[in-house]
Simulated assay, not measured.
Amino acid sequence: MDGRILVELARQTLTRWEGGRAVARYAVSTGRNGAGERNGSGCTPRGLHRVRMRIGEGCPVGTVFRGRRPTGEILDDELAAAYPERDWILTRILWLTGCEPGINRGGCVDTLRRYIYIHGCPDAAPMGEPCSHGCIRMRNRDLIELFDQTPIGMLVEIRN
């Protein structure tokens, strides 16, 4: 597999690499609580990961997911106003699994069991600053572009 994804927490960017060169760069929003691997921390886990599952292919932009399943809702102003504190998971999900035992795999540091995703969020949500509960949030249109170029198994490195 030629491609990989690099998430840089300090820069709040996600870069897709192919053949040793950057082919796309996006602003993201990672964990409000910073970097960290422990379950329940609200932090974004560092290290080497892989895309374990791709969820939502073909769903409309703004599709709302709960428990990794589409709810049948599409986020609009009325729905957003009804649930202002909700951590919206929208459009697509790239579910990550850690590759490093004891760092981001297994026990209380398991990225997969922490349900860490790359996912869409409301257009009004800030990008370029840490605001998530640990996941990597992206603009919906950017996420669709990334999703379409990201197979299961693609490496994802998350670093400071």
Rank of each mutant, 00 (worst) to 15 (best):
G20T: 01
L79Q: 03
V23W: 00
T91Q: 12
F65G: 05
I5E: 00
L94Q: 03
I118G: 03
L96G: 09
H119C: 14
A27R: 14
P126V: 14
R11Y: 07
M138G: 00
L9Q: 07
L146T: 02
G56E: 04
G153I: 01
I5H: 00
R114Y: 05
I103L: 15
T91F: 11
P126Q: 12
M1V: 04
V156H: 01
I144E: 03
G134K: 05
G56R: 04
R38K: 15
E73I: 07
T15Y: 01
L14M: 06
I93P: 01
E157L: 07
T30W: 10
G58I: 06
P70D: 05
H133Q: 14
M53C: 15
A80S: 06
N39W: 14
R139P: 00
T44W: 13
A10Y: 08
E8D: 15
A27K: 11
Y115C: 08
D123P: 08
G98D: 04
A81D: 04
R25D: 03
P70R: 06
G102H: 05
P101M: 10
L9E: 03
I55K: 13
D110C: 12
M53S: 15
L155Y: 03
A22C: 05
L155S: 07
G62Q: 07
V61T: 12
Q149T: 03
R141V: 02
R54E: 04
L14D: 01
T63C: 10
A82M: 11
Q12N: 09
T71R: 05
C43N: 09
